[in-house]
Design a protein around this nucleic acid. Structure first.
Length: 1044
RNA sequence: GGCCCCGUGGCGGAACGGCAGACGCAGCGGACUUAAAAUCCGCAGCCCUUCACCGGGCGUGUGGGUUCAAGUCCCACCGGGGCCACCA
């Protein structure tokens, strides 16, 4: 117990003490709950006032852990609560909800450790979090509370997933469309589709083949991917969940493993996710992080011929160009009729079997000429593939996957496609490198005539593959690699250059292969030095003179870059890139391309504690969606939810065999898809913890709606304009949650389910609450309880007496500097806690908790109380007459506080309130208490100013001032702008830029008048010593500068 | 290694390019008290000068620059933090 709890009850029985604060806080919390003070009706509901503007303030809902709340949790919640209370008083309808993000790994791991079912521990944790949060007096509308584990909620999480499953990203319109539209197009054209290397007409394809084909388009799809497999967690993880080769949760090593998993085609939205960042008011750092994560690179894709030896001549290319008129017709004719005609023409006039697929978009006829080239490539058997290749803009993802597929599947071992951001260095490409996982390597190892040691190659690939990414990085200092025995023909120089494999090239980026330009890329240079590969300079970089002992990666002027058809010599890098790209395109060996670092989002987890997928499998291996009417697919109550130890991921839900093996009818598959009695197997993977947080802010709008994931009208009202008006949470979610939620939102927007492109109009990250710790000379940290403070303000280690310095560190059990919010509230009350945490410093900054400082906030509330209440009687106390100076200050404070709240600058708002209180406080020695302080009206406005920050004490004072309704619904006081300026102001006078004197001038004085007053001032004349200044600068209302 | 942010009293921090250090903590002095606590009043960046008042100089990590004027803008460096990290 702190000093604050002691009270001099005998003399001042109505003081504000920790005890009385606790009493009145609990009392008002009960009243607010009984009265439904913070209940916000929806449009159409009784009590809804349509004339008021809306304000939606959202906290990142917590993941309730067994440990309970720590002092960092409430920081953001207090901030939004202040804003909400201010907005309510300013006349807004305010949506301020709270809920629980309750599925996920930590709860399951805790359950596995303790043997208690996660449903039990999670419920307990939620109850504890709710109790702790309620003690702060937050103005949440608790009637909107829900948890992501509620079947009524995850029913709709599954529903949204189904929307993605039934949709594809149509490159023509740049947005998601129902996949039924694509299917009917395929049917109508009876299109030739490509399924795992085999081409069949749609009408003749098996159901499984059709499904496989459509999986190449669905936004939620099954895909075979090299995944991040964490054996220790027993699950696969998304790229975003892997940091430095270790799991974000737990820090366990992560391996790579090819696996069929549910994916989200988030890459289809790469461009929009990037561009729309300009629409939102977000911290710059977060926008930069998302931009970097999406990682757009502009460059070119170039196809190299693969040769089996240095001497081999490559297979010739056949290049074709259709007449512009044909293309124009093809584009305008969406039915496919024209495409058929082009195919026919190729067959009859060129003797070529050609497939034409329409991947371009009608951007305007002027672009058509430049956007399309038809490339043909002859195979030995005479079959050919043509790719209609469209413009680089927007529709990239769809076409590229298509191109890659065709190239890889149709011409195994014959070409090697690379992506480069520096096509202008093509002449300097002296070797190639492919990732160890690249298919070319597998073929090279099985080539009996290989020029290299195949065993070496196999061994290297085996090591690189099995190595966890952590090790791969740890050993990354020295580059390693093996020659594959294959060569590629540099299309610019015509030279055969060796193809190597090395783990510095990643299979997951670009095409998994690079053209190495050692002269102008540091990584390639390092590799070339180690393996004595040739280095050819092809760019002269002005500020990086060529010395031969390092790569020059800057931009410059092309040299040594010339063949019969094209020359880059003398061209600047930018121009050279454009020239060479055009040349590549005209040769049909590549094109301009945009590449994204973003990969598709792996959405399956081999865990029990998550949302089941609404999918079953038929015995021919097809996945079949559950009908919407059959949702939710409830998570079975599994007694044994222990993860299955295995070298490969095995979902624990497989243990619920009665649940897994069922019939189509029982599972809820529509009879039109499969007969009701057909045996099916349920999907046993579950969704990751991120699923529930992707759309919870929408559910708050109408949490009880049982017919829709969100009520249409409620969504339009609360999310209207720019979505959530204020979203506060930690910057640790800068990419993960905030990127995923944006993706879901865009998908829902495209399908017409929500009304805004972006979910969160304004985002704010609160800083971390840190703590003090102590550091020895050797930089090791010492726990707080092992250190004592000396009288002179220095710190020594108790045991040794050695001096230690105070440093700022994260709160941790080992440093004994963790603060429990419950204790602080017991010692001072929730109002003091709220005030202290907001007064510590700027909201966005990380700040050290200092328990010693809390008393300052407490004393402020005591003074505020004494200012309004006579502590002997408990009755309100008023000055006989309003003090004019105080009135002026009050107006200024009203202005300052309101403006500071809008800026989320709560520390300065509170400082202004303290200044006002200090100015108004009567000395305790004063006997006539009617002399100082506020009059009734001033007191009321003062209490209103206090209300957003310290709602309990404000409510108490408001009622003691005679009001019977809550301060929550009172109007924010107005200020008179005329009261913000004084009649006379004191101006500093600078001489040669240094403040030397002060003069008092009328506030409305003109520059000339001010100048006259200054020059007439006796101090100024003395300081000038008779010499008139050369120049006088008058900044009205600010200062005067005399320059000699 | 790359990009970004931040360096202000003993501590947390204020400061539209215009009086640096608001406000709070800790500290010091005083009032009240038998006393302590609490409360209230006052003092408080550093240095020089002075018995004192007065007065003067230096001060926002370091060094330069722009400007009548720089904590604030520009360049370089030092220190701390964050993000990414072989992304071709």
């Amino acid at each position: 117990m702190s000093d604050a709890t002691t009270t001099t009850a005998t003399e001042t029985p109505h003081r504000y003490t920790a005890t009385s604060a606790g009493e009145l806080e609990l009392r008002w919390q009960k009243v607010w709950e009984c009265d439904g003070t913070y209940h916000q009706p929806n449009p159409g509901e009784p009590g809804f006032d349509a004339s008021r503007p809306k304000y939606y303030a959202l906290d990142m809902f917590p993941y309730p852990s067994g440990a309970g709340l720590h002092v960092g949790h409430p920081e953001g919640y207090i901030a939004t609560d202040i804003m909400c209370r201010f907005k309510r008083m300013s006349g807004c309808n305010v949506l301020h909800p709270m809920g629980w993000d309750a599925f996920g790994l930590p709860a399951e791991q805790y359950a596995v450790q303790t043997g208690v079912h996660p449903a039990v521990t999670t419920k307990k944790a939620i109850d504890n979090f709710r109790r702790q949060l309620k003690r702060f007096g937050f103005s949440y509308d608790w009637s909107r509370e829900f948890a992501t584990i509620d079947p009524d909620y995850y029913r709709w999480t599954q529903w949204i997933w189904l929307q993605a499953y039934h949709a594809w990203f149509d490159p023509h319109v740049g947005k998601a469309q129902p996949i039924a539209g694509l299917v009917s197009r395929l049917e109508k054209n009876d299109a030739l589709v490509d399924v795992e290397g085999e081409r069949v007409r749609w009408s003749r394809a098996t159901p499984l083949q059709r499904q496989r084909y459509l999986d190449g388009f669905r936004l939620a799809y099954v895909g075979e991917q090299t995944v991040n497999w964490c054996p220790k967690l027993g699950t696969v993880l998304a790229n975003e969940e892997v940091i430095d080769g270790r799991s974000e949760r737990g820090g366990f090593p992560v391996l790579r493993l090819p696996l069929k998993q549910w994916m989200f085609r988030i890459t289809a939205y790469a461009e929009r996710l990037l561009d729309d960042l300009s629409m939102v008011d977000w911290p710059e750092s977060t926008r930069v992080m998302q931009t970097a994560w999406i990682g757009r690179s502009d460059g070119a894709e170039v196809r190299f011929e693969v040769l089996r030896s240095r001497e081999e001549k490559g297979v010739g290319h056949l290049r074709m160009r259709l007449r512009l008129a044909d293309l124009q017709l093809a584009l305008q004719d969406r039915t496919g009729e024209m495409l058929r005609r082009i195919e026919d023409r190729c067959r009859t006039t060129h003797g070529l079997e050609v497939q034409v697929s329409l991947a371009g978009t009608i951007l305007g006829s002027k672009q058509i000429g430049e956007i399309l080239t038809l490339q043909g490539r002859v195979r030995q058997h005479g079959a050919a593939v043509a790719v209609v290749d469209a413009d680089e803009h927007q529709r990239e993802v769809f076409r590229i996957s298509k191109l890659d597929k065709l190239l890889r599947d149709e011409h195994p071992g014959e070409t090697l496609v690379v992506f480069t951001t520096r096509p202008d260095t093509l002449f300097g490409a002296t070797y190639m490198v492919v990732a160890p996982e690249h298919p070319l390597v597998a073929r090279a190892t099985s080539d009996p005539a290989s020029e290299t040691d195949v065993d070496d190659l196999s061994a290297y690939v085996a090591i690189a593959r099995n190595r966890a990414d952590v090790d791969r990085m740890a050993e990354s200092k020295v580059k390693t690699g093996v020659f594959t025995g294959l060569y590629a023909k540099n299309p610019a120089t015509g030279e055969a250059i060796p193809i190597w494999t090395s783990d510095y090239v990643l299979m997951s980026y670009g095409t998994g292969a690079i053209m190495a330009v050692p002269a102008h890329d540091e990584r390639d240079f390092e590799f070339a030095k180690i393996f004595a590969l040739p280095i050819t300079q092809v760019v002269d970089v002005p500020d990086q003179p060529w010395t031969g002992d390092r790569a020059t990666s800057g931009e410059g002027v092309g040299i040594h870059s010339k063949n019969e058809e094209v020359s880059l010599d003398g061209l600047g890098t930018r121009e050279a890139m454009s020239v060479i790209t055009k040349w590549i395109e005209s040769k049909g060996i590549g094109r301009r391309r945009i590449n994204y670092r973003l990969r598709d989002w792996l959405f399956s987890r081999q865990r029990y504690w998550g949302e089941p997928f609404p999918v079953v499998y038929s015995d021919d291996g097809r996945h079949l969606p559950i009908a919407e009417r059959a949702l939710p697919v409830a998570l079975p109550e599994l007694v044994d939810y222990q993860p299955i130890v295995s070298d490969t991921p095995v979902p624990p839900l497989g243990k619920a065999s009665e649940w897994v093996h069922t019939t189509a009818g029982a599972a809820g598959v529509d009879a039109s898809i499969l007969p009701a009695d057909a045996l099916v197997r349920r999907e046993t993977n579950t969704m990751p913890g991120w699923a529930g947080s992707c759309w919870y802010f929408l559910r708050y709008c109408s949490p009880k709606d049982s017919s829709r994931f969100v009520n249409l009208e409620a969504e339009r009202y609360w999310m209207g304009g720019r979505g959530v008006d204020l979203y506060v949470g930690g910057s640790e979610h800068a990419v993960l949650h905030l990127l995923y939620a944006r993706f879901w939102h865009k998908l829902l927007f495209d399908l017409g389910h929500v009304s805004t492109q972006e979910p969160f109009g304004k985002l704010f990250h609160q800083g971390m609450i840190t703590s003090f710790a102590y550091q020895r000379v050797d930089k090791s940290l010492v726990a707080v309880d092992l250190v004592e403070e000396r009288a002179n303000g220095t710190f020594v280690e108790k045991e040794t007496g050695d001096a230690v310095t105070q440093v700022i560190a994260k709160m941790s059990k080992s440093l004994k500097n963790v603060v429990n919010p419950d204790d602080v509230i017991t010692d001072y009350g929730a109002d003091t806690f709220r005030l202290y945490e907001m007064y510590m410093g700027p909201l966005e900054q990380s700040k050290p908790w200092n328990t010693r400082d809390i008393v300052g906030s407490f004393r402020f509330l005591q003074r505020a109380w004494r200012l309004v209440i006579d502590e002997r009687t408990g009755e309100p106390l008023f000055a006989a007459a309003a003090d004019a100076t105080l009135e002026r200050l009050l107006h200024r404070t009203i202005h300052k506080v309101g403006e500071a709240i809008e800026r989320l600058s709560f520390n300065t708002a509170i400082a202004a309130l303290i200044e006002l209180t200090n100015a108004a406080t009567r000395p305790t020695t004063m006997t006539d208490l009617t002399l100082g302080g506020f009059d009734r009206n001033q007191s009321e406005r003062f209490v209103l100013l206090l209300a957003p920050f310290a709602p309990h004490i404000a409510e108490e004072l408001w009622h003691r001032l005679g009001h019977s309704t809550s301060v929550t619904s009172a109007a924010w006081p107005a200020h008179d702008p005329a009261m913000l300026v004084d009649d006379e102001i004191e101006l500093p006078v600078q001489i040669q830029g240094k403040v030397k004197a002060r003069v008092t001038v009328p506030a409305k004085a003109s520059a000339a008048e001010v100048e006259a007053i200054v020059l007439a001032d006796s101090d100024v004349q003395r300081l000038l010593g008779g010499k008139p200044p050369k120049k006088i600068i008058v900044v009205l209302g600010r200062m005067v500068n005399l320059v000699g």
